[in-house]
């Protein structure tokens, strides 16, 4: 099963290595995520979770290994056994298909909520404004912010901002959504509203990779859970098994701290 060919996996990472200078952060990460699957990533701080996520949409260049998204090699073109770097335009085209949600929201503060959501479809995909507007309004309605369309991000709570960020990513109709600790910058009482939106997305069949410390969310929504430490995947499997019955010492130690 894990040997699913790259064509029927939404994400496939093969032996991914990444260093910053002399610091090797990813030391051979393998991962397969099938369409419609929710993959949760767990691990201590500094284990390379964010770096791995950023490699998937080529915000970071991998030093060795391959990452395929929906069968496309990210960042390169393989021709005659040789890798050619993709130009800026082609990389951008690949990134359009992948939505990303950041820990610190990163909404554009000089644009209203509606403009934030409309910006990329209008400018990048050059879709018609009226159509995008309807879609954006629908998405904002869906994340429960229909009434806040004309506000600026600075006027919203953290939870509301993160929901706008999710709507902004969805407006590009991505095949894959990446979440990098979407709730860790939020006050505890705001975490739920963001997780609810993500649960809704998962049940609609969106393929998602979620870096999170929310064990409850991972257990309830995740189809697969991977535990990373020191730049490698230490353990993976169905969330119930990994959380309930961890095989590895390091997993056990980590879980005993967060549970």
């Amino acid at each position: 099963m894990t040997n699913a060919s790259s064509s029927d996996a939404m994400v496939r990472a093969d032996n991914v290595h990444k260093s910053f200078g002399s610091l090797e952060v990813l030391k051979g990460v393998d991962l397969v995520v099938r369409p419609g699957e929710v993959c949760c990533v767990l691990g201590p701080s500094g284990s390379g979770k964010s770096t791995f996520l950023r490699c998937i949409n080529h915000l970071e260049k991998v030093n060795a290994g391959r990452i395929f998204v929906d069968g496309d090699l990210m960042g390169y073109r393989e021709r005659g056994g040789k890798l050619h770097e993709l130009g800026e335009k082609d990389v951008a085209k690949q990134r359009r298909e992948i939505g990303m949600v950041f820990q610190r929201f990163n909404l554009f503060p000089h644009m209203t909520v509606l403009q934030n959501v409309m910006e990329a479809p209008c400018r990048v995909k050059r879709e018609s404004k009226a159509e995008v507007r309807d879609r954006a309004a629908g998405l904002l309605e869906r994340v429960g912010l229909g009434a806040k369309m004309d506000n600026y991000p600075g006027q919203l709570s953290g939870g509301q901002q993160q929901r706008v960020a999710i709507a902004r990513a969805l407006a590009m109709r991505p095949k894959l959504m990446l979440f990098d600790e979407p709730t860790s910058a939020l006050d505890p009482e705001l975490v739920g509203e963001v997780l609810d939106v993500m649960k809704g997305l998962a049940s609609d069949g969106m393929t998602m990779i979620v870096v999170t410390h929310e064990i409850g969310f991972a257990r309830e929504v995740g189809d697969n859970l991977i535990f990373m430490d020191g730049g490698v995947v230490v353990e993976q499997g169905p969330p119930r098994d990994v959380i309930g019955n961890p095989q590895h010492e390091r997993t056990r130690a980590f879980l005993s701290k967060v549970l």
Binding site: N57, L59, E88, K89, A92, K93, R95, R96, I98, G99, M100, F102, R104, N106, L107, F108, E119, A120, R123, V124, K125, A165, R168, A169, M172
Partner: peptide, 12 residues
């Protein structure tokens, strides 16, 4: 984070 978010959306 601003340019990162923009780049992740596919902006040039």
């Amino acid at each position: 984070g601003q340019s990162e978010a923009a780049v992740a959306l596919g902006m040039s």
